[in-house]
Amino acid sequence: MTMPALVADRVTLGYDGHVVFTGLTVQIEPGTVTTLIGANGCGKSTLLKAFGRLLAPSSGVVRLEGTPVRQLSARAVARRLAILPQKPLTPAATTVRDLVMRGRHPHQTLLRPWSAEDAAKVAEAIASTGMTELADRDVGSLSGGQLQRAWIALVLAQDAPVILLDEPTTFLDLSHQLEVLRLVRQINARQGSTIVMVLHDLSLAARYSDRLIVLHEGGVLADGAPWDVITPAVLATAFGLEALVMADPASGRPLVVPLEPAPDTAVPAI
């Protein structure tokens, strides 16, 4: 059996005394695309942050390729795990190339903050996200979709085998959402990267993920391949949503079609 890329082993997670998960165990297999889904406030981002050691569990351990992350230096983790947070701050007066160069930090040392290898990796990351022509543009002048690709290029330049993406498609229109998710699949196919992300759109999550984990009320409600997870029963419990699940004619993956509530359960008109 291969060693899991990431394990949250009986972790208790929360903020300021408010507990989200108690003794939760989740394991991520290497080389797969896993998506965390669930209603707002179910703890998708909380679990992702714990995987990315942005949130320390109050009990339990997070293991990266078998080693507890707490035993590794910040830099050592960063060489093996990259995370794109939900709301990164866009720096002023910075070109796309400068921005992506920051992804090389974990590979640099104090006296050698730059190397030819860094420049090559940066160019490669920029090319694979289709940003080559925009490489010398100021990041402040990019559109939402371009900026998101620049952030993904930064994470790619980090050259880590495990990549965590917290809602990489928010604020993007549908075609740009598709573009980002295709890029995620490409990265996974080309480099065998392990990818864990948080998404809101269930049909897109089903279409582009190998595995879905549905989080609900401090635990895992359903976990597995898209067809095993996206069922009317799961949708009803996790989202309080009455929906049909049918095969997406384009991908063959499950497609969620919400139903209108029956007239007597509808919100009464005032």
Binding site: A74, A78, I83, P85, P91, R102, G103, H105, P106
Partner: peptide
């Protein structure tokens, strides 16, 4: 790196 926010800095290996 701090200009990208605390979470990003941590992710990129800054204590």
């Amino acid at each position: 790196l701090g200009q990208l926010g605390d979470d990003f800095s941590t992710g990129l290996g800054v204590a």
